[in-house]
Amino acid sequence: MLGDSITAAYGLAHEQGLPVQLEAALRAKGLPVTVLDAGVSGDTTAGGRSRLDWALADKPDAVIVALGGNDGLRALDPKDTEANLGAILDALKARNLPALLAGMLAPPNLGAEYGREFADSFTRLHQAHPEAVFYPFLLDGVAGDAALNQADRIHPNPQGVKVIVARMLPAVEALLRKTEPS
């Protein structure tokens, strides 16, 4: 999982984090996987792009790209977010690594126009990279729900991580099917 603080289990014990919980859910379904945590708190899409080679050093069979939240929080230009994520997806495709792109939404305080532009960048990425599995919103069912977030209202708490795992599990299973020999 190439990501930011949500992947890096910010504010949680390591075992409560998204990679560990996702791995446990997949193993409970009989899938012998290891989910590698390549999350760096505070990372932007530019940061993820710059450290892609480092993140791939463990030679994963597939990659979940879960970046963009910090771009939105910092009101970075959605065109830059799109370009960085596009470059990451291009690099993964060139290495024949199946990818899942987890989308993100901008915080509502940045205005409707910025929010549309930001969301549209993920839609365009999905259209430009049909080979990648697309999960439209990483925080689906969790964002805005105080009971599922830490006090900062940005990072999921352990219950929020469980919701994320349950909701994105079908998309991750679709990603894993792409790693199977045809």
Score class of each variant (00 low, 15 high):
8 A>M: 02
8 A>W: 05
9 A>T: 02
9 A>S: 09
9 A>G: 14
9 A>D: 13
9 A>W: 03
10 Y>A: 08
10 Y>T: 11
10 Y>E: 11
10 Y>V: 10
10 Y>Q: 12
10 Y>H: 10
11 G>K: 03
11 G>M: 14
11 G>F: 10
11 G>V: 04
12 L>M: 05
13 A>I: 12
14 H>E: 14
14 H>W: 15
14 H>G: 14
14 H>Y: 15
14 H>F: 13
15 E>K: 09
15 E>F: 04
16 Q>F: 00
16 Q>R: 12
16 Q>K: 02
16 Q>P: 04
16 Q>L: 14
17 G>D: 05
18 L>R: 07
18 L>K: 07
18 L>I: 03
18 L>S: 09
19 P>Y: 04
19 P>R: 10
19 P>D: 10
19 P>T: 03
20 V>A: 15
20 V>L: 09
20 V>Y: 15
21 Q>E: 11
22 L>A: 00
22 L>M: 07
22 L>D: 01
22 L>T: 05
23 E>K: 10
23 E>C: 04
23 E>H: 13
23 E>Q: 14
23 E>I: 11
23 E>M: 12
23 E>P: 07
23 E>G: 10
23 E>W: 03
24 A>F: 06
24 A>R: 12
24 A>G: 02
24 A>V: 07
25 A>F: 05
25 A>D: 02
25 A>N: 01
26 L>Q: 00
26 L>H: 01
27 R>D: 06
27 R>H: 05
28 A>C: 09
28 A>L: 07
28 A>N: 07
28 A>P: 08
28 A>W: 11
29 K>D: 15
29 K>N: 07
29 K>E: 13
29 K>A: 14
29 K>G: 08
30 G>W: 10
30 G>I: 04
30 G>E: 08
30 G>Y: 01
31 L>Q: 12
31 L>Y: 13
31 L>M: 14
31 L>C: 09
32 P>A: 12
32 P>R: 10
32 P>E: 01
33 V>D: 01
33 V>R: 00
33 V>E: 00
34 T>A: 13
34 T>L: 14
35 V>Y: 09
35 V>F: 03
35 V>S: 04
36 L>Y: 13
36 L>T: 08
36 L>D: 14
36 L>I: 15
36 L>K: 09
37 D>L: 06
37 D>N: 13
37 D>E: 11
37 D>S: 12
37 D>T: 07
37 D>F: 03
37 D>Q: 08
37 D>P: 03
38 A>H: 01
38 A>Y: 08
38 A>V: 02
38 A>R: 15
38 A>S: 04
38 A>K: 10
38 A>N: 13
38 A>D: 06
39 G>R: 11
39 G>K: 09
39 G>D: 05
39 G>Q: 04
40 V>D: 09
40 V>T: 01
40 V>F: 12
40 V>E: 05
40 V>G: 02
41 S>D: 07
41 S>I: 02
41 S>A: 09
41 S>V: 00
42 G>W: 04
42 G>L: 02
42 G>I: 10
